[in-house]
C-alpha cells in the first residue's frame, strides 16, 4: 500500500460527470472497501437556463444533438450516481457552470483546451474554499484532483483549486486524466512540462481486482461511452491494457502525482 491510499477520508474532485471513474475508479473502490467512505464531488454540474447558452455553447449543443438540456442533465446525474454506487461511494454535485456556460470566456474548442483565463484563478480559489466547507470535510481529508492532461480548462481549474488546498496544508494528489492519457500519451509529458515543480514524482497504486469495478462504473455512462471511446471498439480492453502497463509486474495500477503547495514569495 502506498501513502496515497492510506485509510481516511477522501474527496475525489471531478470537473465533469465521469472523470473520476474514468481516471481512478479503482482507487475509489479500494478506499470504499476499506471503509474510508470516499466521496466523488462533481464540480461543474450546474443547472442550466437560457441566458447561460451563448453562441459557442449552442454550437456544442447542436454538435451533441442536445435538444432537451433538462433531460440531458437528469440523465448525466443518474449515470453519475449509478457509477458512484458501482464503486461503493457517494457523489455530490456542485453548482458551478461548465466552461462553455461561463459567459464569453471560452468561444472555441482551441480556447476550451487552451490557457485558463486569469479571472478564472479567482474561481479556483473559491472552489478550494468551497471544498473545505463541504459537509464531508474533515481535518484529515485528502483531496484528489485531475492533473489536467489534455488541457481542458475545467480540468486545469480544478487542479488549481487543488494547488490552493495543498498550500493550506491539505494532502492533495493529482490523478491521471483518462482517456486523454490513453489516446494522447504525449499529453502527459506536455502537461508535466507546463506544471514544472507543481507536482512531485508519480506514484503507481496497484488496484488489483477493483479494475473490474472501475470498468463497471465507466459502463454506467451509457450516453458517453461511445463518444469518449470513439478511438476504440473495446473500452474495457483499452482501460485494462493502460492500467496493466502502468502497474507492470504489480498488475493493474493507477498513477497519482503529489501536488505541491504554491510557492510563497517574501
Amino acid at each position: 500500500m502506498t501513502n496515497v491510499l492510506t485509510p481516511g477520508p477522501a474527496l475525489f474532485i471531478q470537473p465533469h460527470y465521469d472523470d473520476v471513474p474514468l481516471s481512478c475508479g479503482g482507487a475509489v473502490a479500494l478506499m470504499a472497501d476499506w471503509g474510508c467512505k470516499p466521496v466523488i464531488i462533481t464540480a461543474f454540474a450546474s443547472e442550466l437556463v437560457d441566458e447561460m447558452v451563448g453562441e459557442f455553447a449552442a454550437c456544442k449543443h447542436s454538435r451533441w444533438k442536445v435538444s432537451d438540456a433538462e433531460q440531458v442533465l437528469a440523465t448525466r446525474r443518474a449515470e453519475d450516481a449509478e457509477a458512484a454506487k458501482a464503486l461503493g461511494c457517494s457523489v455530490r454535485w456542485l453548482g458551478l457552470p461548465d466552461a462553455i456556460y461561463r459567459g464569453e470566456r471560452y468561444n472555441s474548442d482551441s480556447e476550451l483546451f487552451g490557457a485558463l483565463q486569469n479571472e478564472e484563478m479567482e474561481l479556483a480559489s473559491h472552489l478550494a474554499e468551497e471544498i473545505r466547507q463541504l459537509p464531508e470535510w474533515d481535518e484529515d481529508t485528502r483531496v484528489f484532483v485531475p492533473l489536467g492532461i489534455g488541457n481542458h480548462v475545467d480540468h486545469q481549474l480544478v487542479f488549481e483549486a487543488g494547488r490552493r488546498l495543498a498550500s493550506g496544508r491539505v494532502k492533495v494528489y493529482a490523478y491521471e486524466d483518462c482517456p486523454y492519457a490513453i489516446h494522447t500519451p504525449e499529453g502527459v509529458s506536455a502537461r508535466l512540462a507546463i506544471l514544472g515543480d507543481a507536482v512531485g514524482e508519480p506514484i503507481a497504486v496497484p488496484i488489483g481486482a477493483t479494475l473490474e469495478r472501475r470498468l463497471d462504473a465507466i459502463a454506467c455512462y451509457r450516453t458517453q461511452v461511445p463518444v469518449i471511446f470513439r478511438f476504440t471498439s473495446d473500452f474495457r480492453q483499452a482501460i485494462g491494457e493502460f492500467a496493466r502497463a502502468i502497474g507492470g509486474a504489480e498488475g493493474p495500477a493507477e498513477r497519482f502525482w503529489p501536488v505541491r503547495p504554491r510557492e510563497i514569495r517574501a
Partner: peptide, 15 residues
C-alpha cells in the same frame, strides 16, 4: 456565505 450549491438552488428555483 453563499456557495455554488446555494447558487444552484437559486437557479433551480428560478427555473
Amino acid at each position: 456565505f453563499v456557495d455554488s450549491t446555494g447558487l444552484g438552488a437559486l437557479v433551480f428555483s428560478l427555473k
